[in-house]
Design a protein around this nucleic acid. Structure first.
Length: 286
DNA sequence: TTACTGACCTGCACGC
DNA sequence: TGCGTGCAGGTCAGTA
């Protein structure tokens, strides 16, 4: 599943392979892949054709690529999305949704998405130095140099919810998905249902350290390839799943204390914890 | 205003 | 072999 490190790997690939190349044509094979572009597939293709992508930016798990026309191509990989730079003559992927060809290039950009939770859109970019309006509500991620740990701690304690639910709230802190939330909580020895208002300053600092550490380790290894759904722009998988301590390790021994890892249903998904290292709080918030 | 829930979507694993 | 069901999970609209 693409989380922040995976998206950053993709951003770096886009930065290397697609910038400065005029777009020759755009083909949309599944309208759902551009559902956020409300003007429709034809408009999406028309507005991009002839444009040149100038940069590749990221806010949390969103990517945006400003064009020379005062707008930006915005992308989100969802759960299974891939942005691939492929030779123009290579066979189409089964779930190819959008193809972008560049003038005079033997490589093209493909948006491939099995589950179509991700998508692309184009929208005006009033300030080239700022984020697009549609993703302005997304908070900075903990790897962002301008991320403010003090403001995060204040906002976190103001919430009246469980700490994992808060970590998954992209308006509070971005880039944390289910996998890295579980890993960061394991590192910080916090149960996912710990009420946010009971977290101390040092506990929040430890949690942030855990989030940063797990993201940086994933980034070093090219992202988390938990299944075959995630690959970088060159189609290569990462290997970070080998380093996961809790997520996906149900009944396996906790790397810290040896107690079998437990899986609970949480928010229509799974949560993995060590029942000894991460004891359930007496007063839990789900 | 804030917290929470469910829908969206598709391929795979599993049981019958 | 084929069918039905459950599961995976990021985001956001709708509800409480």
């Amino acid at each position: 599943m693409p989380e922040l490190p995976e998206v950053e790997v993709v951003r770096r690939g886009l930065d290397r392979w697609v910038l400065g190349r005029p777009i020759e044509s755009v083909e949309v094979y599944n309208p759902r892949a551009i559902r956020r572009h409300t003007a429709g597939p034809l408009h999406f293709a028309e507005v991009l054709t002839g444009r040149t992508l100038r940069a590749a930016h990221r806010r949390g798990k969103y990517l945006w690529l400003p064009t020379d026309g005062g707008d930006a191509l915005i992308g989100h990989l969802g759960m299974s999305g891939q942005l691939l730079v492929q030779p123009t003559d290579s066979p189409d992927e089964t779930h190819l949704r959008v193809r972008i060809r560049f003038a005079g290039e033997d490589r093209e950009l493909r948006f491939v998405d099995q589950r179509t939770f991700g998508g692309l859109s184009v929208e005006p970019l009033p300030d080239p130095e700022d984020v697009p309006p549609s993703i302005a509500h997304i908070a900075r991620d903990p790897l962002d140099p301008k991320f403010d740990p003090g403001a995060f701690a204040t906002a976190l304690r103001r919430k009246k919810t469980g700490v994992k639910r808060a970590l998954l709230d992209q308006t509070l802190i971005s880039g944390v998905g289910n996998i890295y939330a579980d890993e960061a909580l394991w590192r910080a020895k916090l149960h996912y249902a710990r009420p946010t208002e009971t977290l101390t300053g040092p506990a929040i600092a430890t949690l942030l350290d855990g989030v940063r550490a797990v993201m940086l380790e994933a980034l070093d290894q090219g992202g988390t390839s938990f299944d075959s759904l995630y690959v970088n722009v060159n189609g290569e998988s990462g290997y970070f799943d080998r380093s996961l301590a809790a997520y996906g390790r149900e009944d396996e021994p906790c790397p810290r204390c040896g107690t079998p890892i437990r899986r609970d249903a949480f928010m229509n998904r799974s949560s993995y914890t060590c029942p000894v290292c991460q004891p359930k709080p007496r007063r839990a918030r789900w």
